[in-house]
């Protein structure tokens, strides 16, 4: 692993936590939107009870993503608008993956 510069070192902990939660929230959002919701309202309605855990787990862990995103944005000194967008990215499939990639890119560009 390459040596971190002082700014990267200061941000590293929050960054790692945000990355883990962003990937996790992205996977949960995908499950929620493309497994839980369709089985509830569109297809295989009788099998919906097998997937109720998805909404439950997503509901309880999304606040952890929100806190991780807020802490990362504060440490990275992002604008309020960016912070709001980073927090909301956890609610949409793919969006949190995009946020994670963007954060990594910005992190690498820090000097």
């Amino acid at each position: 692993m390459s040596q971190l510069n002082p700014r990267q070192a200061a941000l590293n902990g929050a960054m790692v936590r945000f990355r883990i939660m962003a990937i996790y929230a992205g996977v949960m959002s995908l499950l929620l939107w493309f497994v839980n919701v369709p089985t509830h309202y569109l297809i295989f309605e009788s099998s919906h009870h097998y997937f109720t855990w998805i909404a439950l787990v997503h509901g309880f862990t999304y606040p952890i993503y929100v806190l991780a995103a807020f802490h990362y944005c504060l440490k990275a000194r992002k604008s309020l608008t960016s912070t709001i967008l980073f927090i909301l990215a956890g609610t949409l499939p793919i969006a949190s993956f995009i946020a994670e990639r963007r954060a990594v890119k910005e992190f690498k560009a820090l000097n």
Binding site: T52, A55, L56, H58, G59, F60, Y62, P63, V66, L67, F70, L74, L80, T83, I87
Partner: peptide, 24 residues
């Protein structure tokens, strides 16, 4: 428990919104 989890999400959001004016 799903609804209870949403209660936590909304109240956390309420808290963060209250922090917004002090964000800078």
């Amino acid at each position: 428990w799903q609804h209870i989890s949403y209660v936590f999400v909304w109240w956390l959001m309420a808290l963060l919104v209250l922090l917004a004016p002090f964000y800078n």
